[in-house]
Design a protein around this nucleic acid. Structure first.
Lengths: 178, 178
DNA sequence: TGATGCATGTAATCCGTTACATGATTCA
DNA sequence: TGAATCATGTAACGGATTACATGCATCA
């Protein structure tokens, strides 16, 4: 899936500017399974508008720069429906954290502890993003499904890491006592 | 993290050919959080050998093509230790499946069911990869940690999806009865 | 006889990130 | 006064994937 489809998908839930789409994938409900940078979002939006799949409207704001609000068109909805009806690619998960843990023989216990804590913070941050969006938001039942799935998976990770962390802490304490 | 470091990491656990490294990230214990293609592995290995971070040995095989077995050198271990001692980048997770679920209003219940089943199959496949490696394998305690974490997260996903699937199936049955 | 597994490699292409460029406003 | 937020955009660069090329052995 490319950034074009991503934008179309978000715009099908609500109107938004490029800046707001970036926020959605950075801090919003979608942050834990989507990603895109300004460098890909803005060109995609321009292209989408040129093809008539979205409309643009300049919105003046007081105290803030003007923004371009994009909205999906019927043609855009068709294109979106087509794009997401194909069997999706398998989820991609890349974790440098797990790579580090795999190679823990090369790491000092302190470095390990720092890495685990960082991972814990990252997971909790994502959990926070999901919680912030509240039970109802943009995508209705779809958003709820995604929130529940994310919550389940993220929570499982946290639980596992809390256990590991406690284990490590105890080991460190024993070592210090010797 | 780049493919160079990935190869160095796997070679620190055991000797391997490029083909075997690819299998590790495709079907092995690492498959659910690492990824690399031949097009990136082979050049990386060649480069690593040229820099003296790994050694190459041609191994003749009966009934199979010869293979080049790579092994990490002390210099390679140093380079690896250095590379993984920096704070790792945040995990990247991209899910077209969740994107589809988010946009479920554009999907027929049947397409949704197919998508959920496919996701379930994918998760169970990864779970199988972890189980196949058994309690002990290459990386010792590191491998065990990674296996436990993967198992916890993947299982949570399966549980959540089984529930959703049952819910959907029931809805479909009710609709059919009307 | 055709598909699949084992095995190595190269080159074009693509998609996206990073960095750069600009500028107003608000809050500390 | 400096940092952060809001806001849009471009261009170079990079890293990896995809597709291609080759070839033997085994299994159905």
């Amino acid at each position: 899936m490319n950034v074009r489809t991503l934008c179309l998908g978000i715009l099908s839930l609500q109107e938004a500017s490029g800046y707001e789409i970036k926020k959605d994938v950075e801090d919003g409900l979608f942050s834990h399974f989507l990603d895109a940078s300004y460098g890909s979002i803005y060109p995609a939006l321009t292209q989408l508008a040129a093809e008539g799949l979205v409309t643009v409207r300049a919105e003046e704001q007081t105290g803030k720069p003007d923004k371009k609000v994009y909205a999906i068109t019927p043609a855009g909805k068709n294109a979106l429906a087509k794009a997401i009806s194909v069997t999706p690619a398998k989820d991609k998960y890349k974790s440098e954290f797990l790579f580090q843990m795999l190679l823990q023989d090369f790491l000092s216990p302190v470095v390990m502890l720092v890495a685990i804590q960082k991972q814990l913070d990252d997971l909790n941050e994502d959990l926070g993003h999901i919680a912030n969006c509240g039970p109802v938001s943009g995508g209705g039942s779809g958003a709820q499904f995604v929130a529940e799935y994310g919550h389940a998976v993220l929570t499982a990770g946290v639980k596992c890491l809390e256990y590991k962390k406690a284990e490590l802490l105890q080991q460190l304490a024993v070592q210090a006592a010797e």
